[in-house]
Structures are given as C-alpha cells and as structure tokens.
Design a protein around this nucleic acid. Structure first.
Lengths: 140, 140
DNA sequence: TCTTGATCCTCTAGTGGCTAGAGATTCTAG
DNA sequence: CTAGAATCTCTAGCCACTAGAGGATCAAGA
C-alpha cells in the first residue's frame, strides 16, 4: 500500500486539503511519514475515509461521525446509540422535505399567478412570511 | 408599531444578533433609531424577517434570498424576468427535494437493517463503510 | 425624581467544515 | 541529473451566524 496523500484522495473522493484537515481535527490518525516528511497511508485509511465521506454526504456532523467511528470499534457495545443518531437525523431530513414541499407549492402557485401580469401580482413575501408562523418553532 | 429589536426577534424567531447581522450585510435596511440610538422597527420588517427565516430554514443562500426580495420589490419589472427567476428557484427546490428523498430512503433503510442488538450486527456502520459509489458523485 | 435591572449598543473573536494560495521541499520518470 | 508534479506547512478566507466584553439606554416602581 503506502499511498501518498494524493492517491488516497483519488481513491476516496476526499480532497487532499480535506484529508489534512481531518487529521488536524483528529478524525483520522496522523499516518507515518517518509524520510522527506510526506504522509503515507494504508488500507485502513481508505476504509475510514470512505466511511467519513459517505456519512458527510448523508449530512452527519463531524461529531456524530466521530461517535459512529468510536462505536464501530467497540463491537461489544449496543447499537442503540448509532440507531438513535440515525433516527434523529432521519427526523430532521423529514422536516426539511416537508418544508420544501410547502415551498414548492407556493413557488409554482406564484409562477402560475405571475403568468398574467406584473410582479406586483406576485406575493412571495406574503406567501412565505405569513406561512403559519410559530416563532418558537426552530430548526437548528 | 415601533418595536425594539428584541420584540422583533420574539415575533419573528430570528435572534437579535442575527437581525443586526442581516442589517450589516444589507439583507434588511437600517431602521430609524431612537434619541438614544436604539433601533425601532415596523410591520414591514416583521414580514421581511419572517420571509428570510423561512427561506433560510429551507436552505436557500442569502444571495438567493436577496434576489427574491429584490424581485418582490420591483413591481415595474417585467414579469418575464421574475418568472424565470422563480422557475429556476422551483427547479432548485425540486432538486433539493429529490436529493433529500434519496437520502431519506437510505437512512431509513439503514435504520431498518440495524438489528437493534450489538454493533457487530448493526448495519448502520457497515452501510456507511461499504456503500460503493463513484468518487465523482457528490451530494452538495 | 431616582434607581434598578432588563434591554440595547458596538466591537471583536469564535464556530464548523472546509477551501485557496504562498513559498518551500520532495518525489519520480526520463 | 533534471524537470515538473506532488507534497509540505502556514496563514487567511468562506458563509452564516453566535458569543462575549464593556458600556449606554429604557421603562417601571419606590
């Protein structure tokens, strides 16, 4: 193996500076270096980075990924925690889909209405602003 | 009306520092001040901030929102332009919904497959690690 | 009228998760 | 041996906020 960082990047789809950044924040371990101080990686890092990339693409935060990685290294532990991380993430995704679908309807209604005149007939602000407001309801 | 910033914040669900930040980046106008230099807001700002908050929650970038706001304030402009902006927003919204739904499917599959037992049987981690896909395919 | 405490002001700096660029060094193919 | 691609460290920038310091102002009660 003994891959230089660029090759690791190519194989995992994680950019070179991002790999160094992940090392810096302790998401991956500092690898051995060559005489000339260049990083060399092995098979394990490919797996770990693929895991990280995929989890990021799914929208998991770095801290969550860190937890998942720790868990994956403790095969004795119960998976309740992993399950609840995934579930709360799913709930968040569901909320977003719901909101986007509401917006979708409003936008297309706007386009329909807009088709016949000037912008003064478009009411995007009202449409989104009046949208059943509940100030205490927040999305993180 | 003549609301102080904290009241505006309470009514819109946008935090006080965020309102000031929005003023700084020109997303909302600088409001009149009291003798003692404190901001006072009217009805229009409530609408505008509610609009901004909803749009942000839906994941639109500030520049995107700026366009929508400008558009809504130019009743003279031809409907043609507004229409095409709105349509491109709609396309964007559709893309987002699509991506989120794919994500949703994957997440719930992950959760279903988790045996609710020990990590070694839990497929959440396995799925994240093994999921094969080409490196060039990214989800924003 | 005075005081008290909540709210407001400006300003700087920090957050997450990268990304970009400078300037120097190292690796590798010919 | 050499050219040029890749690597190194370091600093700074991005977006959209968020936090905190240190001070001023406002509104209500005594």
């Amino acid at each position: 193996m003994n891959l230089p960082i660029g090759e690791l990047a190519r194989r995992t789809g994680v950019k070179v500076p991002t790999i160094r950044f992940y090392e810096q924040i302790g998401l991956i371990a500092a690898p051995p270096r060559t005489e000339g101080n260049q990083r060399r990686y092995g098979k394990a890092e490919i797996d770990r980075l693929n895991f990280i990339r995929h989890a990021r693409e799914l929208g998991f935060e770095v801290d969550h990924i860190r937890e998942l990685l720790v868990m994956s290294q403790e095969p004795q532990a119960s998976c309740h925690q992993a399950d609840s991380i995934a579930k709360s993430h799913l709930r968040e995704v569901d909320r977003r889909i719901e909101r986007l679908q509401a917006l979708r309807g409003e936008l297309s209604r706007m386009i329909d209405e807009c088709g016949h005149g000037r912008i003064c007939d478009c009411r995007i602000i009202e449409v989104l602003a009046d949208h059943r407001q509940c100030a205490s309801e927040h999305v993180a």
